[in-house]
Design a binder for these strands. Sequence first.
DNA 1: TGTCATTTTAAACGGGTGTTTGATATTTGA
DNA 2: TCAAATATCAAACACCCGTTTAAAATGACA
Lengths: 208, 208
Amino acid sequence: MDTKTKILNAAELLFADKGFTGTSLREITSIAEVNLAAVNYHFGSKKELIKALMKRYLDELTPSLVKSLEEILESTEEKNLEDVFSAFVDPLLSLNELRENGTSNFLQLLGHSYTDSQGFLRWFITTNYPGIIDNFTAAVHKVYPELSSEEIFWRLHFTMGTAVFTMSSTEALIDIASNDFGLTLDVADVIKRIIPYVAAGVGAPISK
Amino acid sequence: MDTKTKILNAAELLFADKGFTGTSLREITSIAEVNLAAVNYHFGSKKELIKALMKRYLDELTPSLVKSLEEILESTEEKNLEDVFSAFVDPLLSLNELRENGTSNFLQLLGHSYTDSQGFLRWFITTNYPGIIDNFTAAVHKVYPELSSEEIFWRLHFTMGTAVFTMSSTEALIDIASNDFGLTLDVADVIKRIIPYVAAGVGAPISK
DNA sequence: TGTCATTTTAAACGGGTGTTTGATATTTGA
DNA sequence: TCAAATATCAAACACCCGTTTAAAATGACA
């Protein structure tokens, strides 16, 4: 495995767990078993490393997500909101085949992009806005025409909040679920529980 | 204003904006206009300062939330899920009267507790679990008896995710909403948009 | 007014941070 | 094969971190 990949893999592990500001380059290069200076040599800076890490997932996710949503848009069959969200689920779960814990790692990284440092959220949205948000808006509009695109925008972000937050705290929640309800759960289980929730949320009646 | 309060106010501002690990004691004491050593003198450590900051809100919020939920439990009138969530909204919005931007600050701090450092989420839940979660579960159970307490537990956490993440990114989102839809919004507007969403989410049909 | 506890202060402590340097290996292509 | 480009390395850079110290200032109370 080449140095760049070793760094990205170690960074993903640590960033997802401890956040961007909470993880040092020395921890990363130590786990990656490469020299400290390699990060700046290959990526330029810590900030660029973070972007490269997100890009590695987004390059995989965005096209399959766009395709999945377009299939709904072009389909002649009757579709409902759960179908629209299931269009999200398969591309997201396929990140698990790409890399171990790919799905939850990506969503946790996305969560840190929201809260860790100002600007990453904006960067994420602006570099992926047209592909994903427009298609999502169109797909929701198809199955729920009364909803304005403005309202869809908000409900999409509520939905992202739900997914991202849940994944960021999956470990703690699975632990609590096990202690209080005697359940053993994995990421796929949690996602299956989220779908009815967010589908109902996006499909909520329009308030005045 | 005494030193402790000056520190707490400055810490709240910075922690909410930049997270716990992203904010240094030197920034805090500089903005609070107190000596650097005052934090360790009055609070013991940075970690204890964070707990004191959360406690300042929770001492205010928990009793009024419990009371608000108990009113629904004891009410003989017919209640629906939107009523249950409105029970959350008033106590949350009243934090705005306690302190400027109190509501969004608290929710952002809560968000950082989840993602910033391992352990704070657990601390928050265990110190507030009986009061809030049990009452919420009972209130939801009253208006939606078919839902198991296990399912309610999950849907409550999805709801917290929605609220916490929306507030964590309110600034960016309000900005985008203004650019793309020509809207001017404040926190109360956003919360009003969230309620139908989360009420519908929690009230979603039970999946098999 | 003088004593004693409380609070504030400047300075230093030991250690960790991201980044840069210049020398040394390693790989590449003519 | 041998020079040129690429990659790795240990060491140092300048700076920021949370915490501690011991002296100075302030407060309360007899």
